[in-house]
């Protein structure tokens, strides 16, 4: 990983005083590229006990790129289920980047109902299904029924689902 004096100093400051992350996280892209890599390293610099509070704060006060960095960092941070509300927030948006990022490995904490609807939303808004972690293992008959119903609506209107949705239907037993 690239050495960068600003990032080295920022990581040290966050380790000493978690609150310092507020301004460093927002400004990271003006000192280090890619910004997301710097932001994720700052999140990892937080003391473990401070992680649940600050990921919530930084997500809720973040612009879209900051929110994305938080979502992508979740699987590797010391967290249990604390960040599930952030996934629900991202999945309520129509921002395709946020929706995709919410369905990484941390989405194992989503209940099956919420997860199915999230995958269906991906099909609906055109988020590539390759962004959904663990898709084949978790896809079930009920998801297949939901996607098939959407297919019927689309095809009745002379339209099609994205190609990856047809492939998904073929794979669900």
């Amino acid at each position: 990983m690239e050495q960068n004096a600003w990032l080295t100093d920022a990581v040290a400051r966050v380790g000493d005083s978690p609150r310092a992350i507020v301004r460093l996280f927002a400004a990271a892209g003006r000192h280090y590229r890619p910004a997301e890599e710097a932001r994720i390293r700052l999140l990892h610099a937080l003391p473990a006990e401070a992680v649940p509070y600050w990921i919530d704060d930084l997500y809720r006060h973040g612009d879209s790129n900051e929110k994305l960095a938080v979502l992508r960092a979740l699987p590797d941070l010391p967290l249990d289920v604390e960040a599930v509300p952030l996934l629900h927030d991202a999945l309520r948006t129509n921002d395709t980047r946020l929706i995709g990022a919410a369905l990484g490995p941390y989405a194992r904490h989503l209940d099956q109902h919420a997860w199915r609807h999230a995958v269906l939303k991906c099909v609906f808004v055109g988020v590539p299904l390759e962004e959904v972690d663990n898709l084949d293992q978790r896809a079930d008959r009920e998801l297949a029924v939901m996607v098939s119903a959407l297919r019927a609506e689309r095809e009745a209107a002379g339209r099609r689902l994205p190609a990856d949705a047809y492939r998904l239907l073929e794979r669900i037993p």
Binding site: A26, R30, A35, D63
Partner: peptide
């Protein structure tokens, strides 16, 4: 102030 730190 917090918004004034945003990239955009």
């Amino acid at each position: 102030p917090r918004y004034l730190d945003k990239d955009s």
